[in-house]
Design a protein around this nucleic acid. Structure first.
Length: 490
RNA sequence: CGGGGUGUAGCGUAGCCCGGUAUCGCGCCACAUUUGGGAUGUGGAGGUCGUAGGUUCGAAUCCUGCCACCCCGACCA
């Protein structure tokens, strides 16, 4: 690796790719713009899924599954939604292949579909087409459904985890009787995401709403969480949309209210994807490799034995077996790396690369002294501790590591929110320091676009906690009543 | 999709300008010595040089098409 992450150099991209590959998370597939998620990478995704899924259930949602293919006509029903997705879809036009007689498999032109099928770029349309049949009365509402699925967007430019042609995600699609209830749902799910990012991923996020320009195609309001990466660029980590009645109107989904009136339902959708893996990697990792917060790490503790003879190994095995059992009782996942094909130093480096939060090294010397060596991945420090009460020591330390990783990321993020009051200052900060730039903006799409053209920075969000404050737009000088966050983004 | 770059063993590469069947390192296999931070020695295996054509007595090398990947731009979770 050897390329400094903290330098904010152009090597950052290369560093990221190397890290992903060397930490054994993913690789490019033979299929354009797609990726292969390798077992270790997928284990991290499964942790995310498990934790998020529980949060969804706890907030009253159920999982369901809808088709991968969406008839083209569904797409043209919601005008702004079409515009947002029309240019980036994979389209199925035929349903049969044949042998051309020369040993080549070719598309059978006679097997052309009447109506093309779109590989879902997101499922609003097919889900609302389905919900139409599920909803008649206010008694059928709310519908609180989530789907774990893959989606495809034919992106021009791809990047492992951050932007791949196919990606894994969850998408929640809810239907409500009232506007307020739908808004409440969208805000609730944003908070679920924000809490997950901060408490589990240890990635601090800014909660906010998108400007009209950056809003989801078909939404009235897009709530988002924005994270900051170590190179000073922002990353949208999750979104929750208040869709108003747009999809209900497009798909004619009506219900009879308590008052006996026929009304269109109110909708939300929300999602996070394997992009969170990218956020995790770029927020915490260093030149030694991945740094995983304990709550997410598939392996929280790795134990490496150090021995010369089989007798020593047997003694260590006995100790490790009982330690592992205690840790597992505490729901701490343990890996005993007793491969005799690798030396200890190699294992140390390998598990550091994979981001295991805590390493326990036990040798003959330790067995005599009744100690072990604990090595933290986050601080790269080592200490020798007693074997007595070790499981509890480890449990506590994992908690401390989780906190430390979060606070490190939090102070970095806070140091990289810079308030500016002039366009010169704005450009200066973007060029030299990066991060979020907090400033006044006149609220127009035009200004936003011009700033983007000139600086590549976009409005990441209008923070939900932005305080009322009289000011003037740094670009046009027009009045503004709150600050927004600009940044260069992934 | 526009501009630039790169494709040579599992990985990273030299060779290409100036054509003569491929270099080095890591990794891999065997054995020995090793084992508290990525071991060392000796021996060994592994390559349709991205792909399809063309030029040539002869192509990794020159020419053309195609494909993939990387970087920049437009687009985007």
């Amino acid at each position: 690796m050897g390329k400094g992450i903290t330098s904010r150099s152009e090597d950052y991209s290369q560093w990221y790719n190397d890290l992903v590959v060397k930490a054994d998370l993913a690789e490019h597939s033979a299929v354009r713009g797609c990726m292969v998620i390798k077992p270790y990478g997928y284990a991290i995704w499964e942790r995310m899924q498990a934790i998020l899924d529980k949060k969804f259930k706890d907030t009253g949602h159920s999982n369901a599954y809808f088709p991968l293919f969406i008839p083209k006509s569904f797409f043209s029903k919601e005008a702004s939604h079409v515009e947002g997705f029309a240019t980036e879809c994979a389209v199925v036009t035929h349903y049969r292949l044949k042998n051309d007689g020369e040993g080549n498999i070719v598309v059978d032109e006679t097997a052309k579909l009447e109506e093309e099928l779109i590989v879902r770029p997101t499922s609003e349309t097919i889900i609302w087409n389905t919900y139409k049949g599920w909803i008649e009365s206010y008694r059928d509402l709310p519908i609180l459904v989530n789907q774990w699925a893959n989606v495809v967007r034919w992106e021009m430019r791809t990047r492992l985890f951050l932007r791949t042609a196919e990606f894994l995600w969850q998408e929640g699609h809810t239907a409500h009787a009232t506007r307020d209830e739908a808004i409440e749902e969208a805000e609730r799910m944003l908070e679920v995401y924000a809490d997950f990012a901060e408490q589990t991923l240890a990635v601090p996020v800014v909660r906010g709403v998108k400007t009209e320009n950056e809003r989801f195609a078909g939404a009235l309001e897009t709530y988002c969480i924005e994270a900051l990466m170590q190179d000073g660029k922002a990353l949208q980590a999750g979104t929750s949309h208040f869709l108003g009645q747009n999809f209900a109107k497009a798909f004619d989904v009506k219900f009879t209210s308590k008052e006996g009136k026929l009304e269109h339902v109110w909708a939300t959708s929300w999602g996070v994807s394997t992009r969170l893996m990218g956020a995790l990697i770029m927020a915490h990792s260093d030149d030694q490799g991945l740094v995983l917060p304990p709550k997410l790490a598939p392996i929280q503790v790795v134990i490496v034995p150090i021995y010369k003879t089989e007798e020593e190994k047997a003694t260590i095995d006995g100790f490790v077996n009982s330690l592992s059992a205690s840790l597992q009782d505490m729901d701490i996942s343990v890996k005993y790396d007793d491969r005799d094909t690798q030396r200890p130093g190699f294992k140390f480096a390998e598990w550091e690369m994979k981001g295991v939060p805590l390493r326990v090294a036990v040798g003959a010397r330790d067995m005599q002294n009744g100690t072990v060596e604990l090595a933290r991945r986050d601080t790269q420090t080592k200490e020798t501790v007693s074997q007595e009460g070790l499981a509890v020591t480890i449990e506590n330390l994992l908690g401390i590591i989780q906190e430390n990783i979060y606070h490190k990321a939090l102070s970095f993020r806070n140091e990289h929110i810079t308030e500016v009051n002039s366009y010169e200052e704005f450009k200066e900060i973007l060029e030299t320091k990066g991060g979020f730039v907090s400033c006044h903006w006149d609220g127009t799409v035009e200004t936003e676009k011009r700033v983007k053209d000139e600086t590549k920075a976009t409005i990441r969000c209008v923070p939900l906690d932005a305080k009322e404050e009289a000011g003037t737009c740094i670009f046009t000088g027009k009045p503004s009543n709150k600050r927004v966050l600009f940044a260069k983004a992934y």
